[in-house]
Amino acid sequence: MHAAPGALAMLVVPNHWGAHPLLPGSPFATRLRGWAEAGVSMFAHGWFHRDMATHDNALDRFKARRMTAGEGEFLGLDGATAARRMTDGRDLIEQVTGLPVAGFVAPAWLYGSPARAALGRCGFALAEDHMKVWHPPSGRILARGPVITWASRSRARIASSLLAARLLPPVLRHAPVARVAVHPGDAHVPALLDSIDRVVRRLGRTHRPARYGDLLAG
Score class of each variant (00 low, 15 high):
A80V: 02
G70M: 03
P24A: 05
G72V: 09
T30G: 08
A29C: 03
A38Q: 14
N57W: 15
P21Y: 04
R33M: 06
A38V: 01
F48R: 04
S26W: 01
T54A: 08
G18S: 05
H16V: 13
W47F: 11
S41P: 00
W35G: 02
W47P: 03
L75Y: 04
R65F: 14
L59K: 10
P27R: 10
G25M: 10
L22V: 10
E37Y: 03
R31D: 09
H45W: 01
H16R: 06
A53Q: 13
D51R: 05
V40N: 01
H49L: 01
W35E: 03
H45M: 01
G34L: 02
H49T: 00
W47Y: 14
R61K: 15
A38F: 05
P14Y: 01
A19D: 03
P14E: 12
G18M: 03
A64H: 10
D51L: 00
F62I: 03
P14R: 08
L59Q: 03
A58W: 10
A80T: 06
G46D: 08
R65C: 05
W35L: 15
H20T: 10
A69M: 03
F43G: 03
M42F: 09
R50S: 13
E71N: 11
T81S: 14
T81H: 00
P14T: 07
A64E: 05
L22G: 12
D51M: 00
G34P: 00
H45P: 00
D51A: 09
P27H: 05
E71D: 12
G79I: 01
G18D: 07
D56A: 15
M67V: 10
L32D: 00
H20V: 03
E73S: 08
T81M: 12
P21M: 06
G72I: 04
H45D: 01
V12P: 03
L77I: 13
R33H: 08
N15D: 15
S41T: 07
A29I: 04
R33E: 09
V12L: 08
A38L: 10
G46R: 00
F74V: 09
M42I: 02
S41M: 02
H16T: 06
R66C: 08
H49A: 01
G72H: 12
H49N: 00
W17G: 00
V12I: 15
